[in-house]
Amino acid sequence: MTTYTNTWRNKVWMGWFFLQVPIILFMDLLDYMWPAWLYEPVGAPLHAALEMKEWYIAKYNDPIVQWTAETASGHDSWMGLFMHLEFFFLLPTVLYGLYRLVVQRRGTSGCDELLFLVYALEVAFTTLICIFDTSFLDEAVYPAAVKHELQFQLYLPWFIMPTLGAIDMAVRIIGRIKAADAAQGAKKSQ
């Protein structure tokens, strides 16, 4: 089957995937997948990543980034599932996407497009949950201006980009289905 190669949309996907790798590995999953000795002590190889995460937390006090299983207290236990999804599905998909689009430079096949559609929908949906959840943060700790910043300046772009990516992949898949239907229709009319 055909592939979509060298489109500007593939370049946007490459940029998105390149952006995702350090965020997933060194922010979101820092204390989930790396042993503490790699990032906690000053001078450790990943200590700069810990400092960046601590800076982000100090600046925004984002409770979602601060989540741990120990501090969850049942309220936001869904974050544990999100962490597992990020490690077992999002990270491998991002790495595969980079391999496919950057290393192989073959564009996307129908199977790739289906995978990237599911990936984009999962990222958009989980980010939407985070946006919604911030609405319920304690007003004493998170005034309206802080909630607005969390929702619209930090999380909304992470919802919009994968939503546009999902639309892109859906359009590609629909194009394939229409082409297959047309070919089948032509075959039947012969």
Rank of each mutant, 00 (worst) to 15 (best):
A69F: 02
Y96C: 03
V12H: 04
A49R: 10
V123S: 06
N10R: 06
W37P: 00
E122H: 15
W67D: 13
D76W: 05
K11I: 01
E113S: 13
W34F: 08
P22K: 12
F89P: 00
M83G: 10
F17A: 05
L50I: 02
I23T: 14
L91C: 00
I23Q: 04
A120H: 08
A48Q: 15
Q20D: 05
T127M: 05
E40G: 00
Q20V: 01
F82Y: 15
A48L: 11
A58V: 02
A58R: 13
H47T: 01
A72T: 10
A69M: 03
W78G: 10
V123H: 02
D28A: 04
E51C: 06
R100Q: 11
L50D: 11
S109M: 10
K59I: 00
A120Q: 10
Y99E: 09
E86N: 09
F87A: 15
R106K: 03
Y119R: 06
M52P: 01
E51D: 06
Y96Q: 04
H75F: 12
M79C: 11
R105W: 02
D112A: 05
F18N: 01
A124V: 06
Y32K: 05
V12E: 04
A36C: 10
G74I: 06
W8Q: 07
G110F: 02
A124P: 06
L30H: 12
T68F: 07
A44Y: 11
T7F: 00
V103L: 07
P92G: 13
Q66V: 01
H84T: 13
G74A: 09
A44G: 08
D31V: 00
I64N: 08
I23W: 03
V102Q: 01
Y96F: 15
